[in-house]
Design a protein around this nucleic acid. Sequence first.
DNA 1: AGTAATACAAACTTTTTTGTTAGTACCTTA
DNA 2: TAAGGTACTAACAAAAAAGTTTGTATTACT
Lengths: 110, 110
Amino acid sequence: MKKNTKNVSICPVSEALKVIGGKWSLQIINEIGLQKRRFGELKRLVPGISEKMLIQELKSLVGFGILHRKAYKEIPPRVEYSLTEYGVKVLPIISQIQIFGNELINKKEN
Amino acid sequence: MKKNTKNVSICPVSEALKVIGGKWSLQIINEIGLQKRRFGELKRLVPGISEKMLIQELKSLVGFGILHRKAYKEIPPRVEYSLTEYGVKVLPIISQIQIFGNELINKKEN
DNA sequence: AGTAATACAAACTTTTTTGTTAGTACCTTA
DNA sequence: TAAGGTACTAACAAAAAAGTTTGTATTACT
């Protein structure tokens, strides 16, 4: 495994989980997909999320370079979020997790 | 999206995260891979994990049908963990996360 | 009799994550 | 003048996850 400057191992899985490890990030990324989504739109699309968690996650993902944020200078405000070229690389993870999640659901039904 | 008996939506991603959403589960599953691993072995292989978290996760994963636990009636005790047929289906998720994690690491280095 | 090895268990504390509530700025329209 | 719509912010509370410490059973070996 790779080491950092202090010669401590860096685990790719751990590094990834710092970015997409929370309760909501994957759901948000999934709803954005290859589109542009407004804040209010995401609020509706991600069921159960609070406004606080939504902005918190959006900010974090923007900070990690996963999301791009475009604010229009209008009143009332309009902000659009979309995946960056890095963000797009999260989508295959989601696909795999969905496959597994569906297996779990089918398994439960027995 | 699928609905359960109470007509509430079930999200495959959420369901999957209930099983593999913690800090350690993916690392543990990754270390087991297609082999058999003893408790003590995993303790060494997963750096930084406490004994408590290790058994807690192992128990949980056994409960979800991801891991198989085989205890030998010996003293000192010997217990071997391995992936079930369901557990094996987590490996592609890990592969994808590793790809993404490595991208993050490379990105940081600039 | 004392120690070592292995795989845990239980009680408790700390840390992290998530949720709740109330409030802001700005312009438009009634 | 007052209310409405949008994207936030901040303070605080609750819940969930993770960490720490101490202890257990069993047998073999010294």
